[in-house]
C-alpha cells in the first residue's frame, strides 16, 4: 500500500517537473520581477537594486499618469461599447436565424482574428490617410474639395481601428452563450404569449449576460493594452495611451522602474476587472463550461 502511494508521488513529481518549472521560471518569475523592479531606483540613468516607492509616488503625484490611464480607459470603453453593438446582432443572427452553413459563417467572422494584426491596423492607414482611399473617393464624388486631414492621426481613428480589430473577439463568447440557449426556452416564452421583444428582454438577454460580460472584458482589456494601432493611427493623441507610455519608458525614455510601475498598475486594474467579470459570469452562467481565454472560443462550434 505504502509502496503504491510512494510510487504515485514519484510519478506526480516527475510528470509535473517540466511544465511546472517552465511556468515558474518563464512566467511567474518575470511577472514577479516586474513587480519588484517597480520598486527599484534609477540613479543617473543606471538601474540600482535599492528599494524605493519613488516610482509610485511619481506615478500618482503628477496628473500625467492618472490622466493617461483615464484617457486609455475612455478609448477602451468606447471600443467596448461599439464592439458590443456590432457583435451582438451578428451573434444573434448566427445563433437563431442562420440554418445552413452555420459553422462556415462563424468561421468567417472569426478568421480575421487570426489574420495579421499588422495588416488590419495598416488597412485603416491607407483608408483614412490624407491621400487615402476615403478622401480620394469623397473628392471624386464631389462631396469634398480638399482632402480631410482629420481622419487619420486622431483618437477617432484609433477607436475605429480597435473596434474593427476586437469586434470578432467580442462576438465569440456572445455567440457561444446564445447558441447554447435551448430553442425550447424561446418557444416556452412565446407559448406564454410573450411577444418577441419581451422574449428578448426577459429570456434571451439575461441568459446572454455571461457571454456579453466575457466579450466586453476581452475588448476592454485588449484595447486598453494596445500600443501598436495607436502608434500607427493616433498621431500625437497616441502618446496619451497608457501602453504607449510603457513602451516609451522601456524604450527611448529608458526608465524601466517607472515603466514597470505603470505596467503593474495596468496589471492590477486588469486582474481586478477579470476577477469582477469572472464573478458576474459565474453567477449568470447557464450551462456550458467556463472558458477563460479567447483561444477557447476560437474552435468552430
Amino acid at each position: 500500500m505504502d509502496r503504491v502511494r510512494t510510487n504515485r508521488r514519484v510519478k506526480t513529481l516527475v510528470a509535473s517537473a517540466i511544465p511546472v518549472t517552465w511556468v515558474v521560471v518563464l512566467l511567474l518569475v518575470p511577472y514577479a520581477l516586474l513587480l519588484i523592479q517597480s520598486f527599484w531606483r534609477l540613479r543617473n540613468g543606471t538601474l540600482t537594486h535599492e528599494l524605493t516607492t519613488e516610482n509610485y509616488r511619481r506615478l500618482f503625484g503628477t496628473s500625467l499618469y492618472p490622466a493617461t490611464i483615464l484617457y486609455s480607459a475612455g478609448v477602451a470603453l468606447r471600443v467596448t461599447v461599439f464592439s458590443l453593438l456590432l457583435a451582438f446582432p451578428v451573434a444573434y443572427v448566427l445563433a437563431f436565424k442562420v440554418r445552413k452553413h452555420k459553422t462556415l459563417l462563424y468561421m468567417a467572422v472569426i478568421i480575421p482574428l487570426w489574420v495579421s494584426y499588422v495588416v488590419r491596423a495598416y488597412a485603416w492607414k491607407i483608408i483614412l490617410g490624407q491621400q487615402g482611399i476615403l478622401n480620394g473617393l469623397l473628392m471624386s464624388m464631389g462631396i469634398i474639395r480638399t482632402p480631410l486631414t482629420v481622419l487619420l492621426y486622431s483618437t477617432a481613428a484609433v477607436v475605429l481601428a480597435l473596434t474593427h480589430i476586437y469586434t470578432p473577439f467580442t462576438l465569440m463568447p456572445i455567440y457561444a452563450v446564445l447558441d447554447a440557449i435551448p430553442p425550447a426556452l424561446k418557444e416556452a416564452s412565446q407559448d406564454l404569449y410573450a411577444n418577441r421583444w419581451r422574449t428578448f428582454i426577459h429570456v434571451i438577454l439575461p441568459l446572454s449576460l455571461p457571454g456579453v460580460v466575457a466579450g466586453c472584458t476581452f475588448a476592454f482589456v485588449l484595447s486598453m493594452g494596445d500600443f501598436l494601432a495607436p502608434q500607427l493611427l493616433g498621431g500625437n493623441d497616441s502618446a496619451l495611451m497608457v501602453s504607449n507610455l510603457v513602451w516609451s519608458l522601456f524604450g527611448v525614455a529608458y526608465n524601466w522602474p517607472l515603466g514597470a510601475a505603470v505596467s503593474v498598475v495596468m496589471l492590477a486594474l486588469t486582474l481586478v476587472l477579470l476577477w469582477v467579470a469572472g464573478r458576474v459570469e459565474a453567477r449568470g452562467s447557464y450551462g456550458g463550461e467556463a472558458r477563460a481565454s479567447v483561444t477557447d472560443y476560437a474552435a468552430p462550434v
Binding site: 516586474l34 493594452g225 501602453s243 515603466g259 479567447v294
Partner: peptide, 11 residues
C-alpha cells in the same frame, strides 16, 4: 493570453 501583450513583453 488574457493580459495585454505589452505586459508580458516588458516582464
Amino acid at each position: 493570453l488574457i493580459l495585454p501583450g505589452i505586459i508580458t513583453g516588458v516582464a
